[in-house]
Every structure is written in C-alpha cells, then in structure tokens.
Design a protein around this nucleic acid. Structure first.
Lengths: 314, 314
DNA sequence: GTTAGTTATAGGTTTTTATCTATGAGTTGC
DNA sequence: GCAACTCATAGATAAAAACCTATAACTAAC
C-alpha cells in the first residue's frame, strides 16, 4: 500500500461508494461524473495493491480488504473530526493556553479578572509568570508570553499596549510614627525618614525617584527590600516608611497608617501589553476581549480606566 | 481545516519536523531540500488555518494546534499501519475468506483437507456451500465462490480445473440380497433389481447412466433419492441397490455389501475448479497451494491423483 | 429488441503538488 | 565582523491529480 498516492479525497469518494453501493449514485451525490468515480476507485485499488470492490451478480460487492479499508477510513476521519472540534474550541477561545507574565505588584489585581475568566473557560490553561520588572522585561524581549502586565509599559516598537486601571501610590508609616496622626504632610517632611524601597527598576521606585529628582529632593536613608509584602510588614513593625501601590494595601489593614501627602500625587496605570511580532493565542485574545468587557465588573470601578478597545485583538 | 489540500506526505513531513524540532534536519533526513520542507509546513498551516510551529527564542516551538495535529497524525498513521498489517496477512493467506462450493458427495472428503488447513490458518473464514450438482453449477455460473469441487468439471472456458483424487464408484446391496454373497457379478446381473439413484444431473448418476447407455442396458426399476445418506440407509434396509462413490462408504460400515462387479469399473475424479474471470481471494489460492502440498498427507494415498500443480495460483 | 440503467475505457485539459536552485535575512559563536 | 548555521521567499519545472466528454460494453426490464 502506497499512502503517498492516496488522498483524503480519494478515501472520501471510496467511502461514499461503499455506503451507496453504487458508483453512479456516488457520482450524483458528489457532483462528479461517473467515469471520474470509476477512475478514482481504480487508482485507489492500485495504490492499495488489492481489489476493494468487485462486481458480482450485477452489483458492487465490497471485498474484505475494502471493508477493512472502509473501517480504517471511518476511524481516520473520526480523528480529523475530533481535531476539527479542537480547532473550533481553540478559535472560540474556550480551549488553549493564555500565557501571562506580570510584575509583582500586578498579582494583587489580576486574579480578580483571571478568576471569573477561568470559570467561564475551564479548559483554557493559564500559566502565570510573576517576577520583578527586569525579569518580566526580559521575557517580553524574548516574546515568551502572550500577554504582559506592566505599570510602565516598555518600548512599543513591536508591541501594543492599553491601560485598564489607575495605579495610585500611597505613603505608609508605622502606627507609632511621628507623622502617623498628622492630618496633612508635604513630601519634604518625609525626607528625613528611612525609606524602604523595592529594587532598582521597579516601576513604583522609578516613579518615586523621578518625582524626587524633579523636585531636587534626596533621601537621607533607604533600605532595599525584595517584595511588597516584606516592605508592608517592615513598615508595620517600625523599620521605616514606604511608597506602595494602593492596590497592594488591603483597605481593612490597620497595621500601618496611610499619609495624606497634599503636594504629591504619584500614580501610574496598569497596562496590558502584547507583542505584535509574535503569534498571540486565541485564548489570549479572548481573555483580553473578556477583560475589555468586564474590568468594570470585577475591579474596583473607582480605579478602572478601560482603554482596552484600543487593542487590535484580531 | 481543508482536508483536501492535505496529503499524507505533508503530514509525514510535519511529523518529522515536530520530532526533530528542525526544518533543516528534517530536510536532511527525508532527502529533501530545506525550502521544500519550509514550504510544505507553510502549506499545511494554510490548509489547517492555524499556526502549527513558531520560532521562539531561535528555535522551533510547536503550538497547541500543532501538538494536537501531531497526536492526530500518530493515530491516523497507526490505523494505516494496522491496515497494512491486515493486508500483509491477507496476502500471506493467513487471513481473509476462502469460499468453497462443492457437490454433496465431496463433503465426505474435503473436510480431511479443510480441517488441517483451518488449524494452520485459524483466521481464515471458510464458508462452505454444499448442494447438488445443479445448485453448485448455478453458483459456478454466477461466480459466487472462490473454489468449486466437482467430479465432472463444467465447461472450462472461463475456468481452470485440476484433479486431485480418484473417485471410484461401487455397487452396494443389502446384506440379505441374493447377490450379497456372490463372488463375482456382471453389470447385466444387476439390471433386474431396483436401483436407488440420486437426482438427475448428479455426476454419479450421469456416469452410471452413460455406461448403461453405451452398453445398451436399461434399468427395470429405479427410485430417486435426495442424498447419499438416504440411499445408503435405504440400501441397508433392503429398499434396493445403488451405485455410490467409494468415498461415501465408511470402510467399517457393515450394514450393506459391496459387490465385485468384474466387467465394470466406473470412476471419475475430483477436481478443484476456479474461475479465471473473477478475483480469487489470496486465502483461496493459499488453500489450493496447501492442498497441492498436502493431499497425499491427509487423503487416502491410494486414491490421490495430485495434478494441482497445473493450476495457476498467482 | 429497444430503452434505460449500470461500470469501464480512452483521450484530453486545467490545477495542484512536489520538488528543485538561488538567494535573502536573521543568530550564534568565535 | 565573519563563518556557519538557522528559516523564509521567489521563481521554475515536471509530474500527478482531478476532473471532464465521448463512447463502449454489459444487464435488466419492458
């Protein structure tokens, strides 16, 4: 049997002949001429090297080899139908993988969207990568993921980005801090205290430092810590003060005090970013469509800035 | 996904690319050029309507759609391999069907060959048709079976035949018959008795009647019976006398007496007959090859006339 | 014995497929 | 920065596949 000379079309025609038991009838059904079908069968038999149909007592009779081939075809077409179903689900976004990489801070907000989405599409795999800005940027450069979540989006030469959430920064101090009960403070009042900062390159730190620089201020003392959690706990236990995203702070957390800094309103936005020079899975596009329609529903509306319609998701 | 534009070759190439993880390597292995493989993959992706391979971080990466297609291909090729195995068995004669039609009398001898053959090839179906000569001739005319067993083969215009066994006819009488203990009788001595005969057209009867005719003899009385068994039992119970094939008579059957008719030696031969204008299954050809090699072993050698080498079995 | 149906064959056309060579463009390693 | 890879693309050709029409040969039914 020489598979190379067998096409799916040939098998389709063969199956129809077996089903109808007639070459002419098959020709009619498939909108072919009778000689075409005759020839197809002849070629298939040559490729298989075995008679598949015989004319016995004036009617077509399927040989053993023919019947077995017919069964084989049924299985084979069955597998391709399954695959077609898979593709349909893939295209509908209800199956597949949506790989997202996000910076640490985003892990406080993204799950609110990912949870409902995952419930809607349980067959979509959602591998999440969480890292500091440098790590996520690295992945972005290499195009390892479908979607990236940044507060300061990187160069958009081969990417598109759209913001979806306001990201205000807050100054927090220990409960027993001298400023803890001051109604209104100014940025300069804070310079004398020790600041607990994320690593260099962190979006929060970048924003804070550029503000300081533009106003000619310098920190008297700072300590670098690896995570937002560490900073929050450290502040609560009196190690120093810090600037953190509003979203990192639980509203009911009373282990520290949020200052009212009247002359400074630091804020950035959360962006969904996707490369334009890389294949983005249907599942990922579908997730962004979902996000576009549902950010208001699942995230705190007071911070939502839904500009996801700017993304080209097709 | 458009199956019509997908060939098995295309899938083969695709599978190799997935396995090797490289287009160039596949080209080398399949003795193709690299652009050929690139193009094949491109065409396959177009036919599927979905990317199957991506270049990520300088190496080929299989997408979900690609991986699923790969699995589908494995299954599909698996089915064709199974089918190929089936064909191989079919060709080797160890699988398939061997349809044999034989006249009644042959059922006393053919099982001795069919038994051992069937043990050797348990997967070969052996549907047997047994009928009187007219019925088997009818089947022969319509070409309904692979092999026919006749003692008088029909016209050989679209058939070939070869004999394999001598078929002597014997005269039998009841134990209490006047001739039962006569040492030697002549054919004319028998004419006065009632003959039990098979239906008109039976080879035994034809042979007997043509002998009578050539010697100008006429039976005084005859009764027609439907089977050899019926005749044997009828003779034993004294209804009359009969001519029967030697092979129909068990050697240890003492319920009747075999006459020694000195002036008459009626005999024919058993033939295997196959049509030349019809497809003959491998299993059937294989059975005849088996018969050619083993008739001496399984049939009474004293009657064997093995001329099966005259058959064209390829 | 004519008609209507079947399958087979011969001969031809248009498309598609399976390849190739040549070449370009991007990466990796030294 | 060049050699040695990778994959992609363009352009060309020879083979094959997928059809067609016309026609023959056979069978069944009226």
């Amino acid at each position: 049997m020489d598979l190379r000379h067998i096409s799916f079309r040939l098998l389709e025609v063969f199956m129809s002949v077996v089903k109808t038991g007639s070459i002419s009838e098959t020709a009619r059904r498939l909108h072919l001429t009778q000689p075409t079908v005759s020839l197809q069968i002849k070629r298939l038999q040559e490729a298989v090297g075995e008679p598949l149909l015989l004319i016995q007592q004036q009617k077509l009779h399927v040989t053993d080899a023919g019947l077995e081939l017919f069964k084989t075809c049924q299985q084979v077409f069955g597998h391709f139908e399954d695959y077609q179903d898979f593709l349909t689900e893939l295209n509908g976004g209800s199956r597949g993988r949506c790989k997202i990489a996000m910076v640490n801070t985003a892990q406080y907000i993204l799950p609110k969207l990912l949870g409902p989405y995952s419930n809607l599409h349980p067959h979509v795999e959602l591998p999440l990568e969480i890292g500091n800005r440098a790590e996520v940027l690295d992945r972005f450069e290499r195009g390892e993921d479908d979607i990236y979540v940044f507060s300061h989006p990187p160069s958009l030469e081969h990417a598109q980005a759209a913001r979806f959430l306001h990201n205000p920064l807050e100054f927090i101090v220990p409960l027993n801090h001298p400023l803890a009960h001051v109604k209104a403070v100014k940025l300069t009042d804070l310079m004398q205290y020790r600041f607990l900062l994320r690593e260099n390159g962190s979006a929060t730190r970048m924003l804070f430092e550029s503000e300081l620089q533009s106003r000619g201020l310098v920190l008297s003392d700072s300590v670098q810590m690896a995570s937002n959690e560490a900073i929050r706990v450290a502040v609560a236990s009196g190690m120093g003060i810090a600037v953190l995203s509003r979203h990192v702070l639980a509203t009911d957390d009373t282990s520290f005090k949020v200052l009212n800094v009247t002359d400074t309103h630091l804020a950035s936005h959360w962006y969904f970013v996707m490369r334009t020079d890389r294949y983005i899975s249907h599942a990922a596009r579908n997730f962004l469509k979902f996000a576009q329609q549902h950010v208001e529903q699942y995230l705190d509306t007071q911070w939502v800035r839904n500009e996801l319609h700017n993304l080209d998701l097709n």
